[in-house]
Amino acid sequence: TFTSYQLEELEKVFQKTHYPDVYAREQLAMRTDLTEARVQVWFQNRRA
């Protein structure tokens, strides 16, 4: 599960791009204290 802060950050990036590159995902992962893999999976699920 994600915190409301994490979801907010993820959604913010999703609004800009549905396909963030690895750099964007790593920045987001650091900001949200998630792994890059978790961020990647979240985007895959969000796009589905």
Rank of each mutant, 00 (worst) to 15 (best):
12 K>T: 06
43 F>I: 01
30 M>Q: 10
45 N>E: 13
48 A>I: 11
34 L>M: 08
21 D>Y: 02
20 P>G: 02
26 E>Q: 14
41 V>D: 15
15 Q>S: 12
31 R>D: 05
43 F>N: 00
16 K>A: 11
24 A>I: 13
16 K>I: 14
35 T>P: 07
9 E>H: 06
15 Q>H: 08
21 D>W: 02
5 Y>F: 14
3 T>D: 05
5 Y>T: 07
20 P>W: 02
22 V>E: 12
26 E>R: 15
6 Q>E: 03
35 T>G: 04
2 F>E: 03
2 F>Q: 02
48 A>K: 12
28 L>S: 01
37 A>V: 10
5 Y>H: 07
48 A>W: 08
20 P>K: 06
26 E>L: 15
25 R>F: 08
19 Y>V: 04
8 E>C: 14
11 E>R: 03
12 K>G: 05
27 Q>K: 09
13 V>K: 03
47 R>P: 02
31 R>F: 06
37 A>I: 10
36 E>D: 08
40 Q>D: 15
47 R>Y: 03
29 A>T: 05
2 F>L: 13
44 Q>H: 10
45 N>I: 10
38 R>E: 15
21 D>F: 15
18 H>P: 15
2 F>R: 02
8 E>F: 09
35 T>D: 10
5 Y>K: 10
7 L>V: 10
5 Y>G: 05
5 Y>V: 07
6 Q>H: 02
37 A>W: 14
32 T>D: 01
30 M>W: 08
42 W>N: 00
17 T>E: 09
48 A>H: 10
14 F>Q: 01
16 K>L: 13
46 R>F: 02
4 S>M: 11
40 Q>P: 01
33 D>P: 10
20 P>T: 01
39 V>M: 10
45 N>V: 11
19 Y>T: 05
25 R>N: 03
46 R>P: 01
29 A>I: 07
15 Q>G: 07
30 M>R: 14
27 Q>M: 11
48 A>M: 13
20 P>Y: 04
44 Q>G: 05
38 R>H: 09
1 T>H: 12
47 R>G: 03
12 K>E: 10
10 L>W: 00
29 A>Y: 04
14 F>T: 00
36 E>I: 10
18 H>M: 13
37 A>L: 14
36 E>C: 06
16 K>T: 12
44 Q>C: 10
23 Y>T: 10
25 R>S: 04
3 T>K: 06
33 D>M: 12
37 A>F: 10
23 Y>N: 14
34 L>S: 05
4 S>G: 08
36 E>F: 08
13 V>L: 15
18 H>Y: 05
31 R>M: 10
22 V>Q: 15
45 N>C: 11
33 D>L: 10
48 A>R: 12
13 V>E: 10
5 Y>R: 09
15 Q>E: 10
31 R>C: 05
12 K>I: 07
35 T>E: 06
24 A>G: 05
45 N>H: 11
41 V>C: 12
20 P>H: 03
17 T>N: 13
8 E>N: 09
46 R>Q: 05
39 V>W: 02
12 K>L: 08
4 S>L: 11
10 L>T: 00
26 E>K: 14
43 F>M: 04
19 Y>I: 04
44 Q>V: 10
18 H>Q: 14
39 V>K: 01
27 Q>R: 08
7 L>R: 06
21 D>M: 03
5 Y>L: 09
43 F>A: 00
31 R>L: 12
25 R>C: 08
33 D>F: 10
23 Y>E: 10
1 T>M: 13
41 V>M: 15
26 E>P: 02
18 H>V: 06
40 Q>Y: 13
6 Q>S: 02
41 V>R: 11
42 W>P: 00
26 E>C: 14
38 R>F: 11
47 R>F: 03
3 T>W: 06
42 W>Q: 00
13 V>F: 09
40 Q>W: 09
24 A>N: 06
4 S>H: 13
30 M>G: 09
19 Y>M: 04
10 L>N: 00
26 E>N: 12
19 Y>K: 03
38 R>V: 15
12 K>Y: 06
39 V>Y: 01
35 T>V: 04
31 R>Q: 08
47 R>E: 03
41 V>W: 15
29 A>G: 07
